[in-house]
Simulated scan of single mutants.
Amino acid sequence: MRILDKPELEKRLPWNALIDAIAEALREGKVQSPQRQVLPIAMPDGHTANLLLMPAWVSGEAIGVKAVTYFPQNPEKGLSSINAAYLLFDGATGQLKAVAEGDALTERRTAAASALGARYLVRPDARRLLIVGTGQLSIPVAEAHAAVRDYAEIAVWGRKAEKAQAVADALKAAGLPATTADNLEAAVRAADTISCVTNTTEPLIMGAWLSPGSHLDLIGAFRGDMRESDDEAVRKADIFVDTREGATLAGDLAQPLDAGVIGLHDIRADLAELATGAHPGRTDDEAVTLFKSAGFALEDLAAARLAAG
């Protein structure tokens, strides 16, 4: 049995190889991945935490399951809001093959799936990337996007300037052209790609700010009461998702769907349709594209199999 901690996962899951592994799993179409279970846990202090269970398997080849806890109040205690573990079993014998540190696996597969969407939806000449949010996904998401497009500038915006500076410094140390953004509206208007990794329940990105040809990547809000973009952003964009089942439960799409701002027919394609070529992705350099991801178990299984070797 292999133990895969964060340094080992980072070594075994280079961005382009991981992005390709997720794309290949989508093209093969063999992974069975039921919709994840999100179980609310009422805490004694009145807050609500979540336990997420995400199984997936390829018959006769591999079985995997991830257990994730989400405690939104943890950052106030200096702790990570997301904690997880992944178990990978041999699909032919049922024997345990690997145990992976779930936080790092989630970070890398989430960033890789976002970057895979960007392969099809971000203009090839995109030069300015904006990262909105300074949590644990901000650095891997910036790195993954930089692996699929040659950005001349990567700006980081956060509610706290010192955290944005820390993220920018880490990206610069990794050799990326990072800086901070003080004014969110100005940064969005100037960006070719905007990637949001926050846990906000109130929209941060206004559709009126999105420039023609830009791409809005929404990662952070996974519950129905969470939302990173307003109605106008969703209304004006060509909408793409990782999966229809998962993405439409997240507030960025669930709320405008419930309000009749958009309909299910407005979702152009999911990630599998992009990866298989069933949909060409971006077809208009002036269009605003939007990719909403909520995460799904195929990504975890593809990442774990690649890491376990």
Score class of each variant (00 low, 15 high):
R27H: 08
G29T: 03
K30W: 07
V31G: 01
Q32K: 08
Q32H: 02
S33T: 06
S33R: 04
R36K: 15
R36E: 04
L39R: 13
P40K: 00
M43A: 15
P44L: 13
D45A: 11
D45P: 12
G46R: 08
G46P: 07
T48S: 09
A49P: 01
A49W: 02
N50W: 15
L51Y: 13
L51E: 13
M54Q: 06
W57S: 09
V58P: 07
V58F: 10
V58D: 01
G60Q: 07
G60H: 13
A62F: 07
A62R: 09
G64K: 07
G64R: 00
V65R: 08
V65M: 11
K66Y: 05
A67W: 07
T69D: 07
T69N: 06
T69W: 10
Y70E: 01
F71R: 06
F71P: 04
F71N: 00
P72E: 09
P72I: 03
P72G: 04
Q73Y: 14
P75W: 06
E76T: 00
E76A: 14
E76Y: 02
E76D: 00
E76K: 11
K77W: 09
G78P: 07
L79G: 09
L79N: 09
S81Y: 03
S81I: 02
I82V: 15
I82W: 04
N83Y: 15
A84T: 02
A85I: 13
A85E: 10
A85S: 15
Y86M: 06
L87G: 02
L87D: 03
D90L: 08
D90N: 12
D90S: 06
D90V: 06
A92S: 09
A92P: 00
A92Q: 10
A92H: 08
A92F: 01
T93D: 05
T93S: 15
G94E: 13
G94T: 05
Q95D: 10
Q95H: 04
Q95I: 00
K97A: 12
A98Q: 00
